[in-house]
Amino acid sequence: MKPAPFAYARVRSVDEAVALLGETAEAKVLAGGQSLIATLNMRLSAPPLLVDINGIDGLEGIAHSDGTVTIGALTRHVEAERSGTIAAHAPLIARAMPHIAHPAIRNRGTIGGSIALADPAAELPACLLALGGDIDIAGPDGTRTVKADDFFRGLFETALGPCDILTGIRIPAASKNTRIGFAELARRHGDYAIVGLAAAAQGDGKGLKNVRLAYFGVGSTPLRQPKAESALSSELNGKSIDAAIAALDLDPPDDVQATGAVKKYLAGVLLRRVIKQLMEPLQ
């Protein structure tokens, strides 16, 4: 199908974008457009105005300093995929990247757009949650930072207000003790996951501490699993892994890909795979 008519404005600054969003109710931000334009084509949404932020200078790029990796909102997936900084200092993002859609979409889609849309089956929101990252936002009342734990609020619902722009994300850079794990099941490479799991932890002797598990594709938002996390944070053996799987607090709804019961079972399968990755120190 073709989109319903809309007006189009290409802005040069974040302030200009925020002001325009304030003037037109239901206006939408256009970044990479890889989800937005699909919904326009299918007429799942019909905003009166698209505010194209692609012309704003300084919203893209990847930087590492003082133990933090900063990724600008307009950074394309492909830039993160090829970035030496991401590979060295944000290995969970690097590991997730090839699973995100297909090359032609990664060339265009943005990191900020993926977080701002918060598709419950998308990889990056779960990675950000597993890493305990921060989201930088600019809005009518100035700038603010929201923690990933407080950002994802419901189905496609986040801490972003209607006139807010997500300007970037920040994640703690990997250290010598950092452990990461990532696994997802999809019918076709690059499709949205049936179930996926992003995880981060610190190595602690033969075990793990500060385990953070973020499941995706199993609820309205990416979901942490505090009970399973603590089961893995004491000692790591067959018994604690079984206990962690038994402690998974998931009630996935049925969808076109699988029933909730299948998804819940697969969540346990993925946890075993991810624990194997978490046990390996980073190279």
Partner: peptide, 24 residues
Amino acid sequence: CEHGVCGACTVRLNGEIVRGCLML
């Protein structure tokens, strides 16, 4: 498909392939 799934509309934008249906 007109929603980014099938890839039949693939073109190059500034040297990189993109979905022609997901760009205005």
